[in-house]
Design a protein around this nucleic acid. Structure first.
Lengths: 129, 129
DNA sequence: GCTTGACCTTACCATGATGGGAAGGTGCAC
DNA sequence: GTGCACCTTCCCATCATGGTAAGGTCAAGC
């Protein structure tokens, strides 16, 4: 099938499919005599795998590892689990950081009158007041 | 003062100070005859403002607005408040998205034995199983 | 046979915030 | 007068993604 078909079946844009190919995340597909890329069901399956991993926030490097583990029929599930737990820890710290921002900002917002007068604790805090 | 001094006083790297200058976030400073940039306390104050806003997760475009509001002595605090609330909403959706990822992943991790055997619900889920 | 339109190809540029490095100028202290 | 710390500009890289331009391919319809 052509890249457009593989794209709609996998949920990965044609642009990104080509990109994943150039960075070596997915194998180089066969070409027809038209020079069009030619994908099969396995390719689509792999692309859908990548998309799901991206949806869970895994970075490209981690997805590379996940694809290797997926292909390795003798893998230890402990390896996958460790990778996933590391990613959860990463998510945790990002969430915590964002929540700190939110808490600080919410505190400032609740202190701000929000009227027509210029006095504003938000700006004052940013200004180092 | 030189850019290095302004950098340590404001907490913004010299690299980023120059960057903020080229994108017009901060004004072009005076130059000495050596062609070195020359900053004063107001510049440092503004840079520290930018850094605090960045620390709260504001994007450059929002910081541009905040700087304008800061400079406008007749601003309505409601305008600042609205900007901050919009940013809080943005933080909320990012947090929610990350928490969804974390929840899904944690569920998978808890279903995974994490032993030497290859069977792994994490990989299977990614594979669309 | 020729046109039209949908698809494909590569190549380049952009985002946003930041860092790295190269090649070279400035200025002060010893 | 040399060495060192600082500065300058310019270019490149990240990460994942999108856009656009210029051109090739192919099938359907006239």
């Amino acid at each position: 099938m052509q890249i457009g078909t593989a794209s709609s079946l996998s949920g990965v844009s044609a642009k990104m499919i080509r990109h994943y190919e150039t960075i070596g995340l997915v194998p180089v597909p066969a070409r027809r005599h038209s020079n069009y890329r030619d994908y099969d069901d396995d390719d689509v399956h792999r692309l859908a795998f990548v998309r799901r991993a991206r949806d869970l926030g895994f970075a490209i490097g981690e997805i590379r590892d996940l694809l290797r583990l997926w292909a390795d029929k003798d893998r230890a599930s402990a390896d996958v689990r460790a990778l996933a737990k590391a990613h959860v820890a990463d998510l945790d710290s990002r969430i915590e950081r964002l929540m700190e921002m939110r808490m600080t900002l919410n505190r400032l917002v609740s202190c701000c009158d929000g009227d027509n007068r210029p006095h504003c604790p938000i700006i004052e805090t940013l200004a180092g007041g």
